[in-house]
Every structure is written in C-alpha cells, then in structure tokens.
C-alpha cells in the first residue's frame, strides 16, 4: 500500500514509517507531498501525520501514538517508544524520557544528510530497530 505524508520528515514520521513497515505493512511504499499542500487523498493511499487525517496527532499525542491505537497494536516497548516520540515531537508538561531530545536531534540531522525523504525513512529504520532492541533489555538484567 502507498502511505503519504508531507515532505521533510522528522522524528514522528520516521518512527511512524518504521512502525508501519515492521508491524502493519512490510511492503509499504512512501510518497511525499509538498508541505502545507491540502491532502488530495489518492485512491488506495493512506495519509499520515497531516493535520486532520485519521493517522495524525490526537489529544496532544504524536502520530506514532495514534497509529498504535488505530491498529490495536499492544506492545509495552512500543508504548514506551510512543512516549519518547511524544516528548521529542511535542511539548509535554510531564517529561520522563531523557533520551527524547537527543533522539529528536539525531532524526533532524539524519534528514539533513539524506538526499530525500525516502532515504531518511530507510536510514531511520536502523535507529528505531536499535532503540527497540535497547528498550527491550534496558537494564541488561
């Protein structure tokens, strides 16, 4: 399936694309619209992280968090990752994840050194694969 979002991806869309590929649609193809373009919703495509669409920010939570809810994915490590992305991508009054800021900077920098958004998403997979592995065994017990 085709998944469509605005160009110039950051942490929320990198994490969301990783979540889609690993847990929803392994053959996902991603396409990018110019920023602030009104979504044309191409037939058969799913829009994400664009204001007003189904898979977007909700109640102060990031798109990654919304996708977990919408697809009923239950995994405590992914919940923790959603918390991290929330704190990295939006202003939260409670901040519990010290890694959030660093993760945000890494994602922004990664986008800067990639030729295009597709490449940034692909390279981002390694970051979230690694983070998932780490959070699964955080204390090394």
């Amino acid at each position: 399936m085709q998944w469509v979002t605005w160009e110039t991806v950051g942490i929320d869309r990198m994490a969301s694309a990783w979540l889609i590929v690993r847990h929803i649609d392994p053959d996902a193809e991603f396409a990018f619209l110019p920023k602030q373009a009104a979504p044309p919703a191409p037939a058969g495509a799913e829009l994400f992280d664009i204001p007003g669409v189904r898979l977007s920010h909700r109640r102060g939570h990031c798109t990654f968090h919304t996708i977990l809810r919408e697809y009923g994915i239950q995994d405590p490590i992914l919940e923790r990752l959603a918390r991290l992305v929330d704190e990295a991508d939006t202003i939260q009054e409670v901040s519990l994840e010290a890694a959030a800021v660093g993760l945000d900077w890494v994602c922004r920098g990664l986008r800067k050194i990639c030729r295009d958004d597709a490449e940034a998403l692909r390279k981002g997979y390694s970051i979230f694969d690694g983070l998932y592995a780490y959070l699964g065994d955080e204390k090394g017990l």
Binding site: P51, H57, D89, T90, I91
Partner: peptide, 17 residues
Amino acid sequence: TAWTYEQFQWLVTEIAD
C-alpha cells in the same frame, strides 16, 4: 522555524478538537 511552525500547526488541530 520548522519546529515552532509544527508546534503551532498541531496546536491549531488541538484547538479545533
């Protein structure tokens, strides 16, 4: 900035909600 713009953008959707 890219960041402040996005923060305001999402705040607009929260206000609409």
